[in-house]
Measured scan of single mutants.
Amino acid sequence: MADQLTEEQIAEFKEAFSLFDKDGDGTITTKELGTVMRSLGQNPTEAELQDMINEVDADGNGTIDFPEFLTMMARKMKDTDSEEEIREAFRVFDKDGNGYISAAELRHVMTNLGEKLTDEEVDEMIREADIDGDGQVNYEEFVQMMTAK
């Protein structure tokens, strides 16, 4: 299944994987998964984290390695993001709930994920998604960005 991913997608997933893999040992533990999910405003229980890991832990060693992570991402993409997942993601970014993602809100979430971005990089990300040019990202623009192939 992971063989249907483009090189660009694999590179993006590698970057995402390293955000989860806090200690850089090449595997994601339940603790690391929990840290990232909490930084995104989720509050999973230990059991939920274990279930999430077990779902993709092909070799049964209790952690997720990069090939397992790729399989999980490929699977998720095949079920292409349901509207509800996209709306949920939008809410994570839209901290003040005004229906727009500002540069400050984007920077806040990315920083929580451990991504240190310059102001230019954040502005560039907003510009790429900002179709109507108002300097922020509304829900429609967010959907376009998330579903762009």
Rank of each mutant, 00 (worst) to 15 (best):
E7D: 14
I64T: 13
I101S: 04
T71S: 06
E8V: 11
N54H: 08
K14L: 00
D132K: 07
A103K: 10
N54S: 09
E120N: 11
M37A: 15
R87G: 06
M72V: 13
K149T: 07
M77A: 15
V36W: 02
R127I: 10
E121F: 04
A103P: 07
M52V: 10
D57C: 06
L113S: 08
I64M: 10
K22S: 10
I10E: 09
L40G: 03
L106S: 04
K31M: 09
R91S: 03
Y100N: 12
Q144W: 05
I131G: 06
D130F: 01
D21Q: 08
G97E: 13
M73S: 01
E84A: 15
A11I: 06
R87P: 08
M145R: 03
E140A: 11
V137C: 13
E48C: 07
D21C: 15
N43G: 06
F69N: 03
V137N: 07
R127W: 09
T80Y: 04
M110T: 10
Q4P: 14
E115M: 14
P67Q: 10
T30K: 02
F142T: 07
V143M: 14
D65Q: 09
A2S: 10
G97Q: 01
S39G: 06
I53L: 15
F20I: 11
L117I: 11
E120L: 09
S102W: 15
N98P: 03
D123Q: 02
T6Y: 04
L106H: 09
G34W: 02
G24H: 06
Q4L: 10
D57S: 05
E15T: 03
E85Q: 05
E55H: 13
Q136D: 05
V109P: 06
K116P: 14
K76D: 07
G41V: 09
G135M: 03
S18I: 02
A58E: 14
A74H: 07
E121W: 02
Q50P: 04
R127P: 01
Q4T: 04
T30W: 00
D23S: 00
L19C: 05
E120F: 14
F93H: 12
N43K: 10
I28P: 00
N61Y: 08
M77T: 11
V92S: 05
A47T: 12
Q42W: 04
L33W: 00
L113A: 02
D57R: 15
E120Y: 13
A148T: 13
D134C: 08
S39R: 12
E140K: 10
H108A: 11
D132H: 01
D51S: 10
A47V: 10
D3C: 05
N138A: 07
T80W: 05
E115H: 12
T45S: 10
F93P: 03
T30D: 05
N138F: 14
V36P: 01
N112D: 14
I28N: 10
G60K: 15
R127H: 03
R38F: 03
K14T: 08
I126P: 00
L106P: 01
T147F: 05
K78W: 01
E68N: 10
E83Q: 04
E124P: 01
D25G: 11
A16D: 05
F69K: 04
N43A: 06
L33M: 03
V109L: 00
A16F: 06
D96E: 09
Q9F: 15
L40E: 02
D3H: 06
R107I: 02
Y139V: 02
M145E: 06
K31R: 11
D94P: 01
R127F: 05
D59T: 15
F20E: 04
G41K: 05
K76L: 03
G60A: 01
M125I: 09
T63N: 05
G133E: 11
E46Y: 01
E120C: 11
L117R: 05
E83M: 07
F142P: 06
K31L: 08
Q42P: 08
D119F: 08
N54C: 03
H108Q: 11
D51W: 02
E48M: 14
T71N: 08
N54D: 12
T6F: 05
D134Q: 08
E84P: 04
A129P: 13
D94A: 06
D59N: 11
F13E: 06
R38Y: 00
V122Q: 00
Q144T: 06
E140I: 11
S39E: 04
F142R: 06
V109F: 13
E55K: 10
R75F: 06
K149Q: 05
D94N: 11
V92G: 09
A47E: 14
L19A: 14
G62E: 14
A11E: 01
K31N: 11
T45V: 06
K22I: 11
L49D: 04
V122W: 04
V92A: 12
A16Y: 09
F17T: 01
E140H: 06
T80N: 03
F20V: 15
K78S: 13
S39W: 15
S82Y: 04
E124I: 09
I64H: 05
F90H: 07
E8R: 01
P67K: 04
L33H: 07
E121K: 08
T30F: 07
L33G: 00
K22V: 09
L5K: 10
Q9C: 12
K95W: 10
E7P: 02
T111W: 02
E115A: 06
D132R: 03
K78I: 12
D79Y: 10
N138E: 14
Q144Y: 08
E12V: 07
M52P: 11
G34R: 12
D57V: 09
M73G: 15
T147P: 12
T118E: 11
N54I: 09
D59C: 15
R38V: 13
V143N: 04
G114D: 03
V36I: 12
F13S: 10
V143E: 14
R107T: 00
T27P: 09
E48N: 07
E55P: 15
A16T: 10
L49H: 15
K95P: 01
A129V: 12
V36L: 03
D21I: 02
I131K: 05
I86G: 14
A16L: 10
A16Q: 07
L70G: 09
S82I: 08
A89T: 07
L113Q: 02
E141C: 06
F142K: 08
M52N: 14
D119Q: 02
Q144R: 12
A74V: 11
A103I: 10
D65S: 13
N98L: 07
K31D: 02
Q144S: 14
K76M: 03
L19F: 03
P67R: 08
E46N: 01
E85Y: 10
K116H: 15
I64E: 05
D57K: 08
T6D: 04
H108D: 14
A103S: 10
T45R: 11
D123L: 00
E32G: 12
T111R: 01
D134N: 13
Q50T: 05
E124D: 07
D51P: 04
A47F: 03
K78D: 07
M125S: 05
T6M: 14
M145A: 12
D65P: 14
V109Q: 05
S18G: 02
G24W: 09
A58R: 02
T147A: 12
V122T: 15
L106V: 02
T45I: 08
A2N: 15
N138W: 00
T29N: 01
K31E: 14
D94C: 10
R107W: 04
L5G: 06
T45N: 08
V143H: 04
M37G: 00
E46G: 12
L5I: 03
Q9R: 12
T111P: 07
E15A: 07
D3V: 06
K116W: 15
M125A: 07
E7G: 13
K95V: 04
L117C: 05
M73E: 08
F142W: 05
A11Q: 05
Q9N: 00
F20N: 04
R107A: 14
G97Y: 00
K14F: 00
K116T: 13
F17V: 09
Q50G: 05
T35W: 11
N61P: 06
A11H: 01
T6L: 08
V56P: 02
G133N: 09
E84W: 03
H108F: 14
R91L: 10
D81Q: 03
F69G: 00
G34I: 02
E141G: 12
I28Q: 01
S82W: 07
A58F: 05
G133Y: 15
A74T: 11
T29D: 03
